[in-house]
Structures are given as structure tokens and as C-alpha cells.
Computed example of a mutant assay.
Amino acid sequence: MSSLAGRPIVVVSAFFALCLSAGARADGNQLLEECQDGINGMSGGVSRNSVGVGHCVGVLQATMDTLDLFHEAGGLPRLVCVPEGGIPMIQSMRIVVQSLQAHPESLHLNESVLVVSALKNAFPCQ
């Protein structure tokens, strides 16, 4: 197993390439709709698009896992410092939805970049 330690530029480059390689619809507009639907479904309502909710959950979880991977294996500083033990998925969804609604001028950006920005603002590292 090869280590990513000592290669922070490669890791950061790979992360941004991953973020930018997603399809044209992989932006904040789609993520906002899907995560709002997920919050509704997780709060006792009915989801209109379970595949979309799965996409929201997947993007949030994959982004958080990637941030952890870059810190642990890549030796990069933490960008997001969630409380010990993590946070529930619905809380992540609410944070992202709130951020996307507060910044509609950014909805055209890549969804993973928007998730990192939302979580970084909610849980800054000291």
C-alpha cells in the first residue's frame, strides 16, 4: 500500500480534478433540490425523488470522507473540524441547504466545492 504522505500537491490536485470532472448538472442547483427533499423525507414527510436524496447523501458523505482521507493519509491540515463523533446526516444536509440558500450566486459551482465551503463555515478549524 503506497502512502500519500509527502505528496500534498498531488492529493490536492487530485481532489480538485475530481471536483471538476463531475457532470454539468453536478452543481449547487441540483444539490439544493435533492438535499431539501432529503430533509423533508427524514423529517417525516415524503421524498419526491429517492435517487436524488441518495445522491445528496452520497455527495455529502463522500466529500466528508475525502476531507478526512486527505488529512489522515495526505498529511494536509484539516479544512473542516466537525465535533468529536461526527454529526448526523440530516444536520449536514441542513447546513448545506442553508448555505446554498444564503448564496444563490454560487449555485453554478461544483457541488463538492459547495459542500466543503458550507461545512468549513459551520465547523471552522481553530
Rank of each mutant, 00 (worst) to 15 (best):
A5N: 04
A5D: 04
A5C: 04
A5L: 15
G6E: 01
R7V: 00
I9Y: 06
I9G: 03
V11L: 14
V12Y: 02
V12E: 14
A14P: 01
F16I: 03
A17W: 02
A17Q: 07
L18A: 15
L20Y: 01
A22N: 10
A22D: 14
A24Q: 08
R25C: 01
A26Y: 13
A26M: 11
A26S: 11
D27P: 00
G28Y: 01
Q30F: 02
Q30D: 05
L31D: 01
L32T: 07
E33V: 01
E33T: 04
E34F: 15
E34W: 15
E34S: 05
C35T: 15
Q36G: 02
G38I: 00
I39P: 02
I39V: 15
N40Y: 00
N40K: 15
M42Y: 09
M42Q: 05
S43M: 03
S43Y: 11
S43C: 03
S43L: 06
G45I: 11
R48D: 14
N49P: 01
V51A: 11
V51T: 05
G52F: 03
V53M: 12
V53T: 14
G54Y: 10
H55Q: 12
C56E: 05
G58A: 02
G58K: 02
V59G: 04
L60A: 14
Q61Y: 10
Q61A: 13
A62W: 02
A62N: 15
A62E: 08
T63I: 04
T63M: 12
M64E: 15
M64L: 13
D65S: 08
L67F: 06
D68Q: 10
D68N: 13
L69C: 06
F70E: 10
F70C: 13
H71P: 03
H71D: 05
H71F: 13
E72S: 09
A73G: 01
G74I: 13
G75P: 07
G75Q: 06
G75H: 07
L76P: 05
L76N: 11
P77V: 07
R78E: 12
R78V: 03
L79A: 09
L79R: 14
V80T: 07
C81T: 10
P83H: 09
E84R: 08
G85E: 06
G86W: 08
I87H: 00
I87R: 12
I87K: 08
M89C: 04
M93A: 12
R94G: 15
I95P: 03
I95L: 12
V96D: 06
V96F: 07
V96T: 15
V97T: 12
V97K: 02
S99N: 13
S99M: 00
S99F: 13
L100H: 06
Q101H: 04
Q101I: 01
H103G: 00
P104Q: 09
E105I: 03
H108S: 07
L109H: 08
L109A: 11
N110W: 11
N110Y: 11
S112K: 14
L114R: 14
V115Q: 07
L119T: 02
K120A: 15
N121T: 08
A122V: 07
F123Y: 13
F123A: 10
F123D: 10
F123T: 12
